Computed example of a mutant assay.
Amino acid sequence: MMNIFRFSGDMTHLMSVLVLLLKIHTIKSCAGISLKTQELYALVFLARYLDIVTNFISLYNTIMKLIFLGSSFMIVWYIRRHRIVRRSYDKEHDTFRHLFLVLPCFILALLINERSAFKEIMWTFSLYLEAVAILPQLVLLQRTKNIDNLTGQYVFFLGAYRALYICNWIYRYFTEPHYVHWITWISGLVQTLLYADFFYYYFNSWKNNVKLQLPA
């Protein structure tokens, strides 16, 4: 069900994608962006939207699915294949072993899910994986000393999107009967908590008008 918190969360998520694409396409740079995180997000959306051609909910829902699917694979392509953009990729610092996150999330989805149907397991897997997909990006930001404004805004919008979705769940809990989704809630809470340290330093840099820098 759509409400102001969910719509704001969707728009904030969309803003994060637009900011990242603006940086990559306009400036022709992916400096400070983790390819590992982008690959995890591509896998998240691929697993989550398996029903895109079989389960029509609304035109809005379908458009948003297409945007997030298309943009995630486009970003990965830019970083891996674009002749100019890939030169700025910080491979030396983006060394988080992100594939080690995939298997535990998939096993957890097999063990803990709401229904043991294939699409439901893949949906649950996407929730678990999205909760930790930002880790390579946060580690990269801690290692690098060059956090530009667009990169900082990208991560901020990603964190704000999840925080707004928590507000959406709280709102729906009090306005819809029998609305309980523990897997979604716990995964979203874990994901939001991972941003807590970043938010602290982001707001401090904004308040003091200094360059954003995370402690190593």
Rank of each mutant, 00 (worst) to 15 (best):
D10V: 00
F125K: 00
F73M: 10
L212F: 13
L189I: 04
L69V: 06
L164P: 05
F198A: 06
G32Q: 14
R81Q: 10
Y154S: 13
L50F: 08
Q38L: 14
K36A: 10
H82I: 08
Q142D: 12
L101Y: 02
L43S: 09
Q153V: 09
V76E: 05
T175P: 05
I84R: 05
G32P: 13
L141Q: 06
F118C: 12
K28T: 04
L127C: 12
F73G: 07
A131E: 02
F174G: 06
Y179Q: 04
F125P: 03
A196N: 05
V155A: 02
F5Q: 08
I27S: 03
S71N: 12
P104C: 08
V19Q: 09
Y179G: 00
E39M: 08
T151G: 04
H13L: 08
D90T: 01
I75S: 01
T54Q: 04
Y171M: 08
Y78R: 03
I63W: 02
V85C: 10
S205L: 15
F106S: 03
H13N: 04
V19T: 09
Y89R: 13
N204G: 12
I147M: 11
Y154P: 04
W169T: 14
W182H: 06
K145S: 15
L14N: 09
L21E: 10
N61G: 00
E130K: 12
I107P: 09
Q213W: 07
